[in-house]
Design a protein around this nucleic acid. Structure first.
Lengths: 252, 252
DNA sequence: GTTGACTTTGCCGTTGCGTCAAGGTCCAGC
DNA sequence: GCTGGACCTTGACGCAACGGCAAAGTCAAC
């Protein structure tokens, strides 16, 4: 008993285009293909399609479904992961909704919502760093940032741009070291970190401990972590190791 | 004071690719373009970008943002709509999570989750129709469906497929009438509806009132409505009008 | 033999960019 | 004047899961 593509589509409540797609991505191949090129499906394919649609309705991606059906991945395992994703997504939406609500209120009150400073990438990153460090090491670190604020009071936007540019160049140099297999505690690496330290010192006065703390932050803080992971999954750790070595060997 | 694309990108914390994209879709054009083709941005563009990113962080689509910034659409209005969407999406995810949880339980209990009948598009649709009608007219209609179940007891899968195929052909014919401007109460339209009535009567015994109720259902039930709306936004209403006219004129 | 329903492959469109690729431009140092 | 490196341009593909359309071949019934 073989069914044509449209017949199967009707039985399952999907379109024939969908079945062709599933064939194309290797998720569900027909039982056989006629000499005319027509796809023909039989009972086992219907059962498999049933499984596919069941998992699809739960929101799993076709890729995950394929993994589950080939047995590469456990169903319960995949579903648990999906459930976690669903929860995270729900929370994200909840936060968004809250922010939207607040924004609406502000708009209605006529508050102009300047906050233009917050849209300077540089100062925003500094604020985030302050929060992250304060969360890890207590409010004591905030005085460091207050001092940094004093020091950069006269900076123009151009100064910030230059500082940011230098930071990116440093990232590129460290990435080079990593890619070339240079160990993070070698003098070559530490020389690059020396430039990093000099750059940081322009708007902050880290001592041995707090500079090493910054290195650790690169690894632990989700914001920094994501930024470095985007370039190389090993970059954050490399940065931390190099900074730690630098603090140990060249600071006191 | 003009800034290059990368400078603006750094200030705003986005990539230059993003700014080029915004230029391409007309969301944010540079202040001017040099003879070398370079994009240059000035203060007003930065302010606009700030607005864009603010709304983007709230989850609005770039299209909506563009409408808001051109003044075609009110901010508060757009945000309210977005908020509703967020709520609906959250609820959808919550339902999904609940279903996933139940599925995990079933899997762990070893329940095999056959429910193969539920994957027959036809019987599923019938179940949905029963629920929808029961919700509207009370449980009294369920006996109609029980009788239909009796009548289709001996049907093979092929019979269901044929019935479904006929249903789709009828939809196509009605759509033709609609597109050609044939009014729903004309004899020509009623003749098509007569075939519809014959087809329905094979697994159901509608009287004048309940057949008209089915027509109304096409318009009111979200499932049916979506199915017809996909073909033409006026199809559901046309169906209802034609069925109502048929019930009035040719049934008693 | 002619419809009409059905099938095939192939390609564009959706959202918001990331990521090359190929090539032109700018500026500083020699 | 030349070179190198950082910067800029346009163009095109890729993603997820198909929808929709076009051109062309196939099948079955009348």
């Amino acid at each position: 008993m073989a069914w044509s593509i449209t017949e199967v589509a009707r039985m399952a409540g999907v379109t024939s285009r969908t079945l062709r797609h599933y064939d194309a991505i290797g998720l569900l191949a027909p039982a056989y293909v006629g000499i005319n090129g027509y796809r023909y499906y039989e009972q086992p394919q219907l059962l498999r399609l049933q499984q596919v649609l069941l998992l699809r309705e739960l929101g799993l991606s076709l890729e995950t479904i394929a993994e589950v059906l080939t047995g590469q991945r456990d169903r319960v395992d995949a579903l648990r992961g999906h459930q976690e994703w669903l929860r995270a997504e729900q929370q994200r939406l909840a936060r968004l909704a809250a922010t939207v609500a607040r924004t609406i209120e502000h708009l209605q009150e006529g508050t102009v919502m300047t906050a233009s400073e917050m849209f300077d990438g540089f100062s925003r990153r500094r604020a985030e760093t302050e929060e992250a460090l304060a969360a890890r090491y207590g409010d004591g670190v905030r005085e460091h940032f207050a001092a940094a604020g004093e020091r950069t009071k006269g900076w123009t936007r151009q100064d910030y741009l230059d500082a940011q540019k230098e930071g990116e160049r440093l990232d590129a140099r460290v990435l080079q070291l990593l890619r070339c297999g240079v160990a993070p505690e070698t003098p070559e690496a530490l020389d690059v970190i020396a430039d990093h330290h000099r750059a940081v010192a322009r708007h902050w006065s880290p001592d041995k401990v707090s500079y090493a703390g910054l290195g650790q932050l690169y690894l632990d803080d989700p914001q920094y972590r994501a930024r470095y992971d985007a370039q190389d999954p090993a970059l954050a750790r490399y940065y931390r190791d190099a900074i730690t070595a630098y603090a140990e060997q060249r600071l006191n």
